[in-house]
Amino acid sequence: MMESCANIQEHLGAWLDGELAPVVGERVELHLKQCPLCLGEKGRIERINSTLKNTLAAEAANIPFAPFWAGVHARIVEERSWQVRVVDWFRLTLTPPRLAWAIPAVILLLLGVLSLERFVPGLGFGQTNLASVESIDGHGMNVALLRESQTKTTIIWLFEDHEAETESTPEPASADPAF
């Protein structure tokens, strides 16, 4: 007994797409040999597929790659953050052969900058934290200014045998030590 056309047409598309189980596929094939109606249906599905493919392919054939890629490339470049671009630049620039001269060059540059202090004092590259004594004054009370940093200054009063000095010198010491 021949299977109903409605049942076959339900599976016709999947059969054409090669997606039916072999057992069902055989039933469809058998039916098509005997049924011109379903054979016509098969032709219509094939026509839809081929016409759609040809229409779209004809459209796509007119699209050259260069302008298409230009659009994609513009989006990629626009979106990339500066960090990514810097990393990319380093990746492309610092290839092994270039690194061979770049590393010694950087070391030389650093040494040069650090030695500038010798020729141009006050640049600040060679500053240390050593303390310095800046002044020692007289008038009976000697004072030393100990500068340990730019913000810390210690005043040191230096007394030398104060009692003996008073006995031998009748005049009192000046109240305003000069700095």
Binding site: L52, L56, E59, W69
Partner: peptide, 14 residues
């Protein structure tokens, strides 16, 4: 991109 752009364009155009 050169390999696939036409096919992708076709699908999207469809």
């Amino acid at each position: 991109s050169a390999k696939y752009y036409r096919r992708v364009f076709m699908a999207v155009l469809g």
